[in-house]
Design a protein around this nucleic acid. Structure first.
Lengths: 208, 208
DNA sequence: GTCTTGAGCGGACTACAGTCCGTCTTATGA
DNA sequence: TCATAAGACGGACTGTAGTCCGCTCAAGAC
């Protein structure tokens, strides 16, 4: 899954990229991996919101500054942890079998995406909530959201060329916000109910 | 606007309510007003996110504990400040003239609501962002969201009884999230474009 | 192997959100 | 008017996110 064009990974920073003058230094890479490993472990053990970045830095055996330089803030760390899972979904969309991958009608692809994404979301809600609570709407600027958006916009354009595809794609992605998902789960909504609600809505929206 | 049944105000705590044994104490009321006034002024002067609660407490001439006891947290204060404007919109929905108020077809009422809400949102984005970044998805539990939700769910039920009205209402409200609105504005979307995108989507969704 | 350079390091530091609890004020009713 | 208790007050305190900057050391040049 390393050479699929268009994938929006942040965890592969060690690969040399055109325009990035220097590859990642060995000590930097070592520390990045130590931090990710420590974070994953502590999050799993104690719940995402009960773990401070000091604790992660300590567990990784690095200074706090290192964590922040590398990941920017709490949300950045969560994004990096989710990255691997998201890249997998991205790959299935870009090159996997239909209906998630290319080849199926637009509506089917949208519905397949919604079902797959909400399942991923459900499995890692806490991490998603963390990653989306970035200081200044960073969610909407990071690579993976932009990829989901381009993907949906393309399909909207295909199914309903009369709509504003760019805006409508944001509209369709909005109900996937992690805090909403968490709140609805807490209110008793099942995953299946949300999935069928999403696909029913998308179907109504994209059928003329 | 004080006696409209169903309004979800938090700024009217001084009115005696059935089941609440004691009315607000005079010193409490005085301080609440001082804090709201100071917050409104400082937010306007320096931008919502540049003002700390210490600063508000100091400007209001009260202790920090008072601010927190009264409003719970930063989001609670933002909610209280928005409250007056939201109550006004609630009143227009519940008892105002159509299409916002009762009497118009469901789709028209939904579209009128979306246009009105997004305009309100646009006028107070920063405050809305603050109010929705509550610790634990409080947005979805506070009175005003619940009222918007009930309102939309009722109209969905009317227009498309085949859909899951409860879920679909959340779906329709999701694109009104303040952080999304702010991000799209920053990306260059105009208010008018968002309004027409919203009504187009809602129309597609609620027309069978 | 040695030198040079600049990216990386880390922990002290700042600022802020939110809590706690001893003190003080208000409302009540006798 | 005064006693009493429910409740409000406020500032010291705690814990965390995020910044800063002098020091370290990896990596490439020779």
């Amino acid at each position: 899954m390393n050479d699929l064009t268009g994938l929006q990974s942040v965890s592969q920073r060690s690969l040399p990229v055109l325009g990035e003058p220097r590859p990642e230094r060995a000590d930097a890479r070592r520390n990045r991996l130590k931090v990710l490993e420590a974070a994953e472990r502590l999050f799993a053990e104690q719940g995402v919101k009960n773990v401070s970045l000091d604790a992660i830095a300590a567990a990784a055996g690095v200074g706090k500054g290192t964590v922040f330089r590398r990941f920017g803030d709490r949300a950045g760390l969560a994004v990096a942890l989710l990255d691997e899972r998201e890249v997998e979904l991205q790959a299935r969309i870009l090159t996997g079998p239909p209906p998630l991958g290319p080849g199926a009608p637009a509506l089917d692809r949208v519905n397949a995406f919604l079902a797959a994404y909400v399942e991923l979301l459900d499995r890692h809600v806490e991490l998603f909530v963390d990653s989306e609570n970035a200081s200044d709407g960073a969610r909407y600027r990071i690579g993976s959201y932009r990829l989901w958006h381009r993907h949906i916009a393309m399909l909207v354009e295909e199914a309903r060329p009369d709509l504003d595809a760019d805006y409508t794609a944001h509209f369709i992605l909005a109900p996937l916000a992690a805090d909403l998902h968490q709140a609805l789960r807490a209110e008793g909504f099942t995953l299946a109910r949300m999935q069928s609600g999403l696909t029913a809505a998308a179907t109504a929206l994209l059928t003329s």
